[in-house]
Design a protein around this nucleic acid. Sequence first.
DNA 1: TGAAATGTTGGGGCG
DNA 2: ACGCCCCAACATTTC
Length: 476
Amino acid sequence: MSKASIMWFRQDLRQDDNHAFYEAVKQSEKLLCVYIYAPGELKEGALGAASKVWLHHSLKVFQEALAEKSIELHLFESESTLGTLKKLCKEHNIEKVFWNRLYEPAIVERDKKIKAELKGAGIQAESFGGHLLWEPWDVKNKSGHPYLVYTPFWRECMRSHSLRELKAAPKLSTIKSFKVPCDRLDDLALLPSREWKDSMMESWHVGEEQVRKRTKSFISKHLKDYSELRNHPNVDGTSQISMALHFGELSVRRVWDWVESSKAPAPACEVFLKELTWREFAQHLLFHFPHMPKRPLKSEFAKFSWSKNKKYLQAWQKGMTGYPIVDAGMRQLWQTGWMHNRVRMIVASFLIKDLFLSWQQGERWFWDTLVDADLASNSMGWQWCAGSGADAAPFFRIFNPTLQGERFDSQGEYVRRWVPELSKLPKKWIHKPWLADKKILEKINLSLGKDYPLPIVDHSAAREKALSEYKNLSKK
DNA sequence: TGAAATGTTGGGGCG
DNA sequence: ACGCCCCAACATTTC
């Protein structure tokens, strides 16, 4: 039993199944809850603009939820988390600091240092597993190395790794709370002046309570059709829990439990649990290969000579490439901070293999604009598309944006929703407007090249070029 | 969680 | 009735 402790909240803004919080409440008489915003320490993991907006709202809701139980969540903007923690410990006679572990390289390094320094200063420090299903150092192949291929990773997790015990939300009625001077939420300046910040959040559920409802309703209504409907961008067939998993409003372990105890057929459950395990795989990869966000995991790809065409990059970012499914996705991303996963693969393939821009350019744009931006998932995903990652798609697997559109948005509804200038175009041409009859275009008063761009590159020519470039690379 | 090129098969039209 | 061609449908290979 410790008299006074700090609960250091990070990406675990929840009460349910929060091991560090559970133990902190159990082991302490008096508890100081803190969130420390120290962007300078995070390197390439420093939050993107959309993530900051999400964090702002998430912190607000979490503060309110704790306040209902008379617990204050103290916010601090800081240049040194260690400095802030040490100062608080000293000022308030703190005996122990609790937190849940994270696995990004810069954070791991910082937290190790913090733990050592606190212990050196005579303060106990204990970290807990809560962000993942399994610890990265526990899942290894027979020769003791981390897995580089997903399927064996999945099998190994299923075969030999049990899930940790779930923890209920701690009972807060008996714990004594501190109230100390701290920053206000607005002082953290997480909301940019960008105009999309309000409209962006309209699409999403924020906070533990709302996210729980949304997830449970997904499981009971949509999980049974997940394997099919998750591919159709205009259908509400995905769980949309990525952002809540990133900031920890939702425990992945808890979701796993809900899915396993759901009434959905076992094969549907498995498809979904495999997606949760892809997230896990990404986190483990980043832990073992800290350079994943910056450099190709397959080093031969470092020689690839990418284009630096700024106009192409801008056209892609703004959703003005002339390929409707690509543009719809990029505009959905800009307006809502989120893009359907099927479309993420399509726009990524397009950036890399049609425009020859490096996957890192795409990675950085997603990082800044996605509310669910996650260093591990994002860099793994981009490397997967580029063919340079672990268990990646072969480079020659090139998506044809027209065919992908026709297959997964067969009615063109997704395109019409996000690219309104094409909304009157008949289904037949919705994914290839440049082939539409002039008469039709005149009739709907659509002037290609003016109201909507002509394709900025020719897909089949770009495909040939990409393949020959790749061939050269593998020769060298 | 590709697409395109190439190969194979089999039904039907037709001399 | 037969051979031939066409081509859609499907399978396999290649990038």
